[in-house]
Design a protein around this nucleic acid. Structure first.
Length: 464
RNA sequence: GGCGGUGUAGCCAAGUUGGCCUAAGGCGAUGGUUUGCAAAACCAUUAUUCACCGGUUCAAAUCCGGUCGCCGCCUCCA
């Protein structure tokens, strides 16, 4: 039985999909006007975690994630850079997908772009006008009238009459009937350059909230199982999605709303002025690897604010190193025979705790505790000579099982011939007890970025 | 002001429907075993205590009351 915390009820709920086998999942994707930052990737890694766990538990998941490729910022930057909107958004869409690959995030099944679904968006706006939920204002924009939708606020639990209104909103949008009405269709203005589509209400472009309602309906269904996003999207974005979708269909839009908490960097909200703003690329350039970043993002609970630090990255590096080392030792195990009962019991107990923890709203800390408890025990078994091929295989299978979720296994690191040759030479001179030459070779290897460990099975070169 | 989260060891972080908590796990640190020296690994130590004050109880990190701190949303934002 799986539990998820549903933002709408604010409770952990048993997960029961509409269909026994197939789960529909929609996640809010990036606005592609720049490289995505590490906070964006926390969200994406969380989506990935949920999806992987659902799959591990036997569900088939259809995952849709939109690409917002038209909004104020994309238009503004394409004009500034003197390129077309499409040139700009293609560039950053590709960059985003590359970064996802680096962080080992499984790509969604469908990646619809907003600009490729304009007709469907126009249809939804028409439908909302016909049903009396939307109106065209004197500024030629179409707004959703929240006073017509009685459930408005049910997700964020905000009472609109108590909202402290931002001054900017009050000044800008004086054509709306109600200050909190939001745009479904934005009329073209000079700032938009040549970015516009024809519509029954004149040239313009869709509002941001609209695209998710349309794409979820278009590529999944009127009612979907899971919708995810960062907690900052709860209001107004997700609230508005509910209003649009449910006003149009008369059906529940989403059964389980799952939101990940914000990410801080070195204790502060990321901002360029504080110098703590990092894209995934920035971290890669500093020498961190995708799996290390992924592990940091994954290793604390998704609903808990995460403080991203370089200490944390170091800790991740060491922890992963430990997993790598255990794998290598297990792979080198020898000895025939069956697995011993003690090892079987340890593996089973770890597996049980692993599954129970992740089933409980993806509680990663105790799940990792189970994994690392087993690592320690496995090392003890190796140390005491209790390991044979069969039991090593049993442990490795469990490690692989956890890696279906974590996906932090080391890349096959092809050690260059040169390094292997040096390591072999060192093994030879060590037999001759030529320690000075052995140390010299170790220094040479270190300069080339490798370290060598002397194990009973022979030397082992590792990339530093 | 409204809504929500949070405060556990040097750092990160579970536990918060009260008692297997004499408080998981990771990183770091110190000592030991091992090693030609290392590395890795193992062993031991590293919170008499869970922001603070008071209360309930046979029993509280966990419940109740109060105080203080930090963070997010209410405006584009993962």
């Amino acid at each position: 039985m799986m539990l998820f915390t549903n933002t709408q009820t604010r409770k952990k709920e048993k997960f029961i999909p509409l269909d026994k086998q197939n789960v529909s999942m929609y996640t809010c994707g990036p606005t592609v006007y720049n490289f995505a930052h590490i906070g964006n990737f926390r969200a994406n890694v969380t989506y990935d975690l949920v999806k992987r766990w659902l799959k591990f538990r036997g569900f088939d998941v259809k995952h849709v994630m939109n690409i917002t490729d038209v909004d104020d910022k994309t238009i503004r930057d394409s004009i500034t850079e003197g390129i077309t909107l499409k040139q700009l958004t293609d560039k950053y869409t590709n960059a985003f997908m590359d970064d996802c690959k680096t962080l080992r995030v499984i790509a969604p099944d469908v990646y619809p772009r907003a600009t490729e679904n304009i007709p469907q968006m126009i249809n939804l706006v028409s439908e909302l006008i016909d049903k009396g939920f939307a109106y065209k204002a004197t500024d030629n924009c179409v707004y959703f009238s929240i006073s017509k939708f009685k459930d408005y606020g049910k997700l964020s639990h905000l009472n609109l009459s108590e909202l402290k209104q931002g001054e900017r909103v009050a000044n800008d949008e004086y054509d709306k009937e109600n200050i909190s009405d939001f745009a479904l269709w934005k009329a073209w203005s000079e700032n938009d350059g040549n970015v516009k589509w024809d519509s029954p209400w004149g040239p313009g472009r869709p509002g941001w909230h609209l695209e998710c309602s349309v794409m979820a309906r278009e590529f999944l269904a009127d009612t979907i199982d899971i919708h995810m996003g960062g907690e900052d999207l709860i209001f107004p974005h997700h609230e508005n999605e509910i209003a649009q979708s449910e006003a149009a269909t008369g059906k529940t839009f989403v059964n389980y709303w799952i939101h990940n908490a914000f990410l801080l960097v070195e204790g502060k909200k990321m901002s360029k002025s504080l110098g703590n703003f990092f894209t995934a690329r920035d971290l890669l350039h500093k020498g961190w690897t995708g799996r290390e970043i992924r592990f940091v993002l994954l290793s604390s609970h998704y609903r808990q604010q995460l403080n991203f630090t370089f200490d944390g990255l170091h800790a991740a590096r060491s922890a992963l190193q430990r997993l790598d080392d255990l794998r290598e030792k297990l792979a080198a195990a020898s000895g025939e025979g069956d697995t011993c009962a003690e090892i079987t019991a340890a593996v089973n107990s770890a597996k049980e705790k692993w599954i129970a923890s992740l089933d409980d709203d993806l509680n990663m800390s105790p799940a990792l505790a189970a994994l690392f408890d087993l690592v320690r025990e496995a090392n003890k078994f190796i140390e005491s000579g209790k390991i044979n091929i069969a039991s090593a295989k049993l442990i490795l299978e469990f490690l692989d099982e956890t890696d279906e979720i974590l996906d932090v296994k080391k890349d096959e690191n092809e050690i260059p011939e040169e390094i292997i040759a040096l390591a072999k030479e060192r093994a030879l001179v060590r037999k001759e007890k030529n320690w000075s030459r052995a140390d010299e070779i170790r220094d040479i290897l270190k300069e080339k970025g490798y370290t060598v460990e002397d194990t009973p099975e022979g030397p082992r070169a590792k990339k530093l």
